[in-house]
Nucleic acid binder design. Structure first.
Lengths: 209, 209
DNA sequence: CCTACCGATCGGTAGG
DNA sequence: CCTACCGATCGGTAGG
């Protein structure tokens, strides 16, 4: 049992290493950075090739098309968030704690996995069918799950009586504001940012008398 | 005095009418809709011309370049928000009321002037110099003013002790989430949306015991 | 406002 | 992984 766990652990480590070290991994990372900076449509395969250090034509030995890169980024990110919300959903915590956890997970992903998460959030419109519909469905389902957790909190009297989809919309978009934090020169540190964001979203701006 | 007011009112009405009815006005409105839907880079002048109902070459009798359209949209929106924040800044209201007013103004603009506001918020990166730097500066100054109002509220004990720039970032991005509301089929009405958003931002998600 | 057209650049392929 | 190249499309102009 122990040996098995060790083995599968080192296997997945090797897999991660391979992905990180591989040329395809490099292409994906450079593409994320460029799609975030200039947008998917404004990034040319020649720009990308230059960043990777090869000719444009050589990119096609590692990827099938420009759109396949975007697909890889978007669905990677979608999987990360889907896996997390399922774990939180099935936990036995109070609703307010579930929301706190979800919120912090979003914040950390936006800090640590910035380029990919940002691209997935802002550039998915450029996905081709059938990926576009698939992605939109996943997105809709994710938000429904999130809203359900909030509804549950309202029912249990832990959360204020608000429109749950509106709360989800605010939370998700507020988190994407971390983009401005990344850009700003006089950054507060990541921990302070996280705690400030959580405090504002959970308890609001107004000071209680 | 009364006659003067009447006259300038009808003059500006005529001006608005002219702008709305003119071909350039039409081009700007169609461009806003398409830039929002597909992004600036992915919208071609041929697409735009078709939406307007003329040939691509004919667009250039009304506008100088594709980028000039984006400039018109972005700076129009910037002016609207700058004018408003200056009015609010110099009013003698409590800080929490100023913030409430600012927030509601953003929400209403995002509902009533959706295409332009959205494009200005998401596509300004494609502005050319010197417009790009100019726009970024205006944006930075706007956020500083907004943060100052929050700082003022913290000093007066009306607002919780939070990092003001983080609060600004949350508010501005949360409001841009109205995009999801526009997209959604089962919309709550605009008034409910506004009140829910304000309640969540000002008083938070957690129900007070 | 149109027809006709420009050079530049795009994503992608053939062949080695 | 490169050289050489494809057809398509881009923003924009000339001339009427």
């Amino acid at each position: 049992m122990y040996a098995l766990k060790q083995r599968s652990l080192s296997l997945s480590m090797a897999k991660l290493q391979r992905k990180k070290a591989s040329k395809k991994g490099l292409i994906l990372r450079k593409a994320s950075a460029m799609f975030r900076e200039k947008g998917f449509a404004a990034t040319s395969m020649r720009d990308l090739a230059e960043a990777v250090g090869i000719e444009a034509a050589s990119l096609y030995n590692h990827i099938r098309s420009k759109n396949e890169i975007l697909e890889a980024i978007c669905f990677d990110v979608a999987n990360i968030f889907n896996t997390n919300i399922e774990t939180i959903e099935s936990s036995n915590q109070k609703s307010i704690v579930k929301i706190d956890n979800l919120l912090r997970f979003h914040i950390r992903q936006m800090i640590e996995n910035y380029e990919e998460v940002y691209v997935s959030d802002r550039e998915w419109k450029h996905l081709d069918e059938p990926y576009l519909s698939n992605f939109q469905t996943q997105r809709r389902n994710y938000r429904k799950k999130f809203a359900s957790i909030i509804e549950e909190g309202i029912a249990k009297n832990e959360i204020r009586k608000i429109d749950a989809p509106t709360a989800v919309l605010i939370i998700l978009h507020a988190v994407s504001g971390i983009e401005s934090w990344h850009r700003s020169k006089a950054k507060i540190n990541a921990e302070e940012l996280e705690n400030n964001m959580v405090m504002i979203m959970i308890d609001g701006l107004r000071k209680q008398p």
